[in-house]
Nucleic acid binder design. Sequence first.
DNA 1: TTGAAAGCGCTAACAT
DNA 2: ATGTTAGCGCTTTCAA
Lengths: 326, 326
Amino acid sequence: MTGVSIATVSHAFRNPGRVSDLTREKVLKAAARLGYSPNHLAASLRTARSGNIVTIIPDVTDSYNSRIIKGIERAAHSRGYSVLLGNTQGSAEREKEYAAMARSRQADGIILMSHRFPFDIDASAAAGEELPPIVNGSEFTGHEGIPSVSIDDRQAAIDAVSHLLNLGHRSIGVITGDMESTSSQQRLDGVRIALREAGLETHDRNVIHGDYAMRDGERATRKILANKEKPTAIFCFSDEIAIGCLHALRSFGLNVPGNLSVVGFDDVPFARYCAPPLTTIAQPAEDIGATCANILLDMIDGKKPTLFRHILPHKLVVRESTRSIA
Amino acid sequence: MTGVSIATVSHAFRNPGRVSDLTREKVLKAAARLGYSPNHLAASLRTARSGNIVTIIPDVTDSYNSRIIKGIERAAHSRGYSVLLGNTQGSAEREKEYAAMARSRQADGIILMSHRFPFDIDASAAAGEELPPIVNGSEFTGHEGIPSVSIDDRQAAIDAVSHLLNLGHRSIGVITGDMESTSSQQRLDGVRIALREAGLETHDRNVIHGDYAMRDGERATRKILANKEKPTAIFCFSDEIAIGCLHALRSFGLNVPGNLSVVGFDDVPFARYCAPPLTTIAQPAEDIGATCANILLDMIDGKKPTLFRHILPHKLVVRESTRSIA
DNA sequence: TTGAAAGCGCTAACAT
DNA sequence: ATGTTAGCGCTTTCAA
């Protein structure tokens, strides 16, 4: 329609500098009239860049996860990338399916919110393949050369327990997340360290393992309450757990923080609105997501990562679910 | 490596039936050894199918939205499609950017969780273009020929208000979402209908418009409480609003349901864990999402939609935030 | 500043 | 059951 070549049209869209302003105008105008827009797929095939990254995450519905995703999406979008959502419900098989999108060039890289590595690393090595760019968010697969971004979970747990210790608590119940998760492992580590330093030991019967969801917090709390030596405080490894815990406590007629103090983890938006507002460890979830995306995009751009462990700051937020019993 | 043709390899992967079991085995084995996997991008270019759908949604972090997304992802995945996340923060511009992915063939269709239509429909018509497959979730753009899936918002609001009316409430405050949103409009409609049928009128000073978030509920509740004629019940157009409302009420020393009854909307997972557990309208959010995806995928498969308004069932869930004052 | 042309890796129609 | 081949719509090198 403009009588201009196909190459010039391409430049008009992608390299405005390499074409005269006049032709560019003409091309763009004609495109608008014809309803033409460049086929991104064809461009991707040619450049071997899909412009997508895939996020492998257990559950978008989880308040912490959804904030991570939001941060990823924001950073990716601002760099011209789109995000493919891989909701896995914790299934290793689905993790692999989504990871395979990088192999099939549907995605240029992977953000992995899981502790499992989604590739058979020996087989890949045997085939002489390189792994696609991948970064670990919040969790660690334990593989070398994979950048990870998270808070210092161990220190965060130490901070939480120290807070309770300072308040005079000596018997502290713990409700962990899935213990396969490295973040839960680190946090439990922190708990033991803090307790040991205070000359206390960790009573296993008051350490309940569940998952990061509300119903797990509820269930675990019932278990703790069934023990004969009840703790005076409970440290929950997620706010959702803490919310379930609060709920269970309420149903037992127990007052928080009157009878028992509760500490959460994450500082999800709801934490502030709980009854009582929850003392918790704030994680910069959106920043973690955004940082993951930026590191991944740098890797995709060919930058070799130099720092493999990105630690973002956490913060103890004291609200009304904890009190001094000194 | 197998000495077999390129077409046979293609068939071995995609049409297992059109190739002998033996060759297929050989091909797959060789692929594994070589670390080969089919380039999805190239296939997409050839078939003019990206295998992606894009979801345009204001905020993944919202408890209702995240359940919608989860349903979409589940249905799409089970039909071999992936979902591209378009988090817009309510920006019309970003809605358009994401919608453009369908034009550029990065996505085969659009699920739109917005009341705004992301295309300039006149310009498209002028260019003689067809719109890409698109379905509306929860909201309506008001365009013909676009299937939508939602609950019957008006009836749901009638149900909520009737519940309060039956409990003896005569003065009911309302906290709506964004009034640009068709769901809020419909719900407010329902409120007026139910009230009028009871011979009551809707007092505008007790109808506060905000957004669907917790802080809006908090703020709106303060406004209602500042009026001299206080309602005995508040109907919130989302559970998040209700949670903010509960929080504000608590800070004023008001007991729910002792001093005031509160009804939410959505039945997000938190609703059950609130203090008190929230009476609310349950929406089948995941099903809405899944239904959107299935309709869209049918359209992508060339099926012309026959039903343009899919209504899924809602349900009033009575918990402990409402009580009789008769 | 613009154009010609090769080729990205696949699918599908057609031939064998 | 398998092979040959055109071509999807771009980008990019090289030439004009």
